[in-house]
Lab assay of single mutants.
Amino acid sequence: MLEGKVKWSNSEKGFGFIEVEGQDDVFVHFSAIQGEGFKTLEEGQAVSFEIVEGNRGPQAANVTKEA
């Protein structure tokens, strides 16, 4: 699992980007967020995730919010 911080997200469009130190930003779709209820990410929020190869390149999977 990698750790990063949410660079920005748009809940209306359903995606955002995660900033990882020393690496390119990672695309995240809201379907990759683990948990119940409305899935949102806040700018600056710490997250853990895996990287998978998506249709348009690397993207985050199994995203969990850190406490």
Rank of each mutant, 00 (worst) to 15 (best):
Met1Tyr: 11
Pro58Asn: 06
Gly44Asn: 05
Glu21Thr: 10
His29Trp: 11
Glu53Asp: 10
Lys7Trp: 05
Phe15Gln: 02
Glu53Ile: 15
Leu2Pro: 02
Ala67Gln: 12
Gly37Gln: 08
Asp24Gln: 13
Val28Cys: 06
Val6Asp: 00
Ile18Val: 04
Ser11Asp: 07
Leu41Lys: 00
Met1Gly: 07
Ser31Asn: 07
Lys7Ile: 07
Leu41Ser: 01
Val26Asn: 00
Ala61Ile: 12
Gly35Ala: 07
Val63Arg: 01
Ala60Gly: 03
Glu66Thr: 15
Ala32Tyr: 07
Pro58Gln: 07
Glu66Gln: 15
Glu36Lys: 11
Glu53Ser: 11
Phe38Asp: 12
Asp24Leu: 11
Phe15Thr: 02
Val26Thr: 04
Arg56Trp: 15
Lys13Glu: 05
Gly16Met: 05
Lys5Gly: 03
Gly57Cys: 06
Arg56Leu: 09
Gly4Trp: 04
Glu42Pro: 08
Val26His: 02
Ala32Pro: 02
Glu42Thr: 12
His29Pro: 08
Glu36Ala: 11
Gln34Val: 14
Phe27Gln: 00
Asp24His: 11
Thr64Trp: 14
Asp25Arg: 05
Ile51Gly: 01
Ile18Trp: 02
Gln45Asn: 08
Pro58Arg: 14
Gly4Leu: 04
Val6Phe: 05
His29Leu: 09
Ser11Pro: 14
Phe15Ser: 01
Ser9Trp: 15
Gln45Cys: 10
Gln34Glu: 09
Ser48Cys: 13
Phe17Ile: 04
Glu3Trp: 15
Lys7Asn: 03
Asn10Ile: 06
Val28Leu: 07
Ser9Val: 15
Ser9Thr: 15
Thr40Cys: 15
Ala61Pro: 00
Gly57His: 04
Val63Glu: 03
Val26Glu: 00
Glu3Leu: 15
Glu42Gln: 12
Gly35Phe: 07
Arg56Gly: 07
Leu41Asn: 01
Asn62Leu: 07
Glu50Val: 14
Val63Met: 03
Lys65Val: 15
Leu41Arg: 03
Phe15Ile: 07
Glu53Gln: 14
Glu53Tyr: 15
Glu19Pro: 02
Glu50Asp: 08
Ser31Trp: 07
Ala61Met: 11
Ile33Asp: 03
Gln34Tyr: 08
Pro58Met: 09
Gly16Thr: 03
Leu2Met: 11
Glu66His: 15
Gly35Lys: 04
Phe38Gly: 10
Gly37Cys: 11
Lys5Ser: 06
Lys5Asn: 07
Val52Leu: 07
Lys13Arg: 11
Gly4Ile: 05
Thr64Ile: 14
Lys65Asn: 06
Gln45Met: 11
Arg56Phe: 13
